[in-house]
Design a protein around this nucleic acid. Structure first.
Lengths: 143, 143
DNA sequence: CCATAATTGATAATGAGTCTCAATAACAAG
DNA sequence: CTTGTTATTGAGACTCATTATCAATTATGG
């Protein structure tokens, strides 16, 4: 499924579908959420599969280009990715105390963004919204 | 004004208000918008003032902590800051072709975010919204 | 003016990500 | 299946932003 999409993408560009790319694609999707290149790399080694760090980085870039994964955010400790296939668009709330992440989607929010873009003559392609604050649990702890 | 705020912040923490920090504060504000540490550093050298790269980075962190500036986004080429004092909150549209940035503010957008937070029991402190796409000029060029 | 502790700056260190390049493997054509 | 062409791989060198180190310097309260 995603594999097909990736293969098509590669062929179109005269690129090849290799063992390493298969492994990296599968592991990326297996996270079913957020992940970072280093964790992905270790996952691969742990399961006895093989792919170098360089290939991981190279392939993640390809997967981004064909839309199978997305770069969510760059942190001090590197880039965070997320598999986006079959995953509908959503935004994030990030708890600045415990680091937990809430994914949410709001139709009105999307609509208003479209309006705002139109107002500025801007053609929006995609967006990232991150709301930082305190999750339910940490609000209690703060007191 | 901003200087007072910074001095107070420093005193509270037993930190000192030095020549270097003055220079870095003033230059940071002088950009009146987005800037990056490297440009700031070169601005300082160009005008014959003195402050090392190390001090620039250290001071930018302090200025962030006391809210006088904000980290807007991390790029492949480093962090982008923005002076936030006297600057009311706004979000960004980023043209992925020419790199131009449109700042905008939308009251309804803010209100809806508050609602969404409430719905998830989340206490929002601040947020970043970046809409990527094509600015008016680049839409024309694309054709 | 003095003593103390924070600050500075030159430079080394760190770490994510990219580049290099010789060896290897995918794939199309015969 | 075999071969030739060309993309890919991986180990390690490299880049570049940012942070840590540490001896020398300086702000600040008394």
């Amino acid at each position: 499924m995603e594999k097909k999409l990736f293969i098509t993408f590669l062929k179109e560009r005269g690129l090849r579908f290799t063992k390493e790319r298969t492994v990296i694609l599968q592991k990326s999707l297996s996270f079913n959420g957020h992940f970072d290149p280093e964790s992905l790399y270790h996952q691969i080694r742990k399961t006895g599969l093989k792919a170098s760090r360089a290939s991981v980085y190279r392939t993640l870039n390809l997967l981004c280009e064909c839309g199978l994964i997305e770069r969510v955010r760059k942190t001090d400790r590197g880039t965070i990715y997320e598999s986006s296939f079959g995953h509908k668009h959503h935004d994030h709330m990030l708890c600045i105390r415990c680091g937990s992440i809430i994914e949410f989607y709001s139709e009105p929010l999307e609509k208003i963004q479209e309006k705002v873009c139109k107002k500025h003559g801007f053609l929006g392609a995609n967006h990232t919204l991150e709301i930082r604050g305190y999750c339910k649990t940490c609000q209690k702890k703060k007191k």
